[in-house]
Amino acid sequence: MGRALINVPATAKAGDIIEIKALVAHVMETGYRHEVDGKPIPRDIINHFTCAYNGVVVFEADFYPAIAANPFLSFTTIATETGVLTFIWTDDKAEKQVETARITIT
């Protein structure tokens, strides 16, 4: 998998609802396209995403081929404590890409 872009506020007040944006570079090949010679291009997509806040999963997504290339997600979570947000993308080959972001509660 490719480069990931994650947007998490560096600081927040406890109880704040924070917006998280996460994007990863990936072709998200649908499996419905063909080469010029007619050979089908095999499906290769990220099918699962999780976001955990200090180890507790707070958001999860299942993707199908209708999710655009370089899948982008924006969602919210409540800032509770200083710690680490862990983002995991899993593709059809069960390969994982793991990224983290720190958040400090003021």
Partner: peptide
């Protein structure tokens, strides 16, 4: 797509492409 959330989400809102 299917998106799972809960009370810790704060808002029931998801955006994608």
């Amino acid at each position: 797509g299917t998106f799972r959330m809960g009370p810790r989400s704060g808002k029931a809102r998801v955006a994608t492409r």
